[in-house]
């Protein structure tokens, strides 16, 4: 369970999040949806213990989030940053060396699933394959919480589909909570349990995807158009 209580985050005079409160339940897939600069990334970084609130409390499973939360959280950054001399296998070895919960067997399966060549240098990989590799090292961890910041951004439809299928194949649905921040809704609408709409650092609404369809007859995209 992840909870934000009256969380405000300021960067200098800019307010990234303004008095935000919400709770995310275990075992669900959440979509954090909003335009660029809405506060999605800041929220995810706070859950990951990479950024701390100016005021208010962020807690995970009842514990206030600090740097040690990294043991419970797998975080996929939106940045396409890599060591160019590394091979795919080096990247996996390095990731495994940084955490205690790395599942080697799962990593191996994921590499095959994503059709990555272990000996290939990262600088020789396409952007799409680097995105696939990032997902491999994130999903290979057995953490109760998975945070994915813009996993689809700038990727072609084939790569997007392989990422969706990778998630569906390897998430432990009963035990893992997944939060996906994105401004691209098309790919993931059917993957989500709940959607959180965020704009200008404030939560506009939290809805269950199937309930939106049942009670309002709206897809997530149509709903987003109404509230933004």
């Amino acid at each position: 369970m992840i909870s934000f209580e009256h969380v405000t985050k300021k960067y200098g005079r800019e307010t990234a999040l303004n008095d935000v409160s919400f709770t995310l339940e275990k075992g669900k897939i959440y979509g954090f949806l909003g335009p660029n600069g809405s506060g999605k990334s800041t929220s995810l970084k706070m859950m990951a213990g990479l950024v701390f609130p100016s005021s208010g409390t962020v807690s995970v499973n009842g514990k206030k989030v600090d740097r040690k939360i990294a043991a419970d959280i797998a975080y996929l950054s939106e940045l396409d940053f890599y060591y160019s001399a590394f091979t795919v296998q080096d990247m996996i070895n390095f990731s495994a060396s940084q955490v205690s919960d790395f599942d080697w067997k799962k990593a191996e399966e994921l590499v095959a699933f994503m059709q990555l060549e272990p000996n290939k240098k990262l600088k020789q990989l396409s952007k799409g394959n680097r995105a696939r590799l990032k997902l491999v090292v994130t999903l290979a961890r057995n953490t109760p919480i998975l945070l994915l910041d813009e996993p689809f951004s700038g990727l072609d439809p084939m790569v997007r589909e392989s990422i969706v299928k990778g998630l569906l194949s390897y998430i432990d649905f009963a035990n893992q909570t997944v939060v996906i921040a994105t401004h691209e809704i098309d790919e993931i609408e059917m993957l989500l349990d709940e959607v959180i709409a965020i704009q200008n650092g404030a939560i506009r609404a939290i809805e269950n995807v199937e309930e939106l369809r049942e009670t309002k007859g709206l897809s997530v995209i149509e709903w987003m158009k109404q509230i933004f």
Partner: peptide, 14 residues
């Protein structure tokens, strides 16, 4: 449920 989720691209809870 998992296989069907992967085939359809739909959340397993659904």
């Amino acid at each position: 449920v998992r296989e069907m989720a992967i085939q359809t691209g739909v959340n397993p809870n659904t």
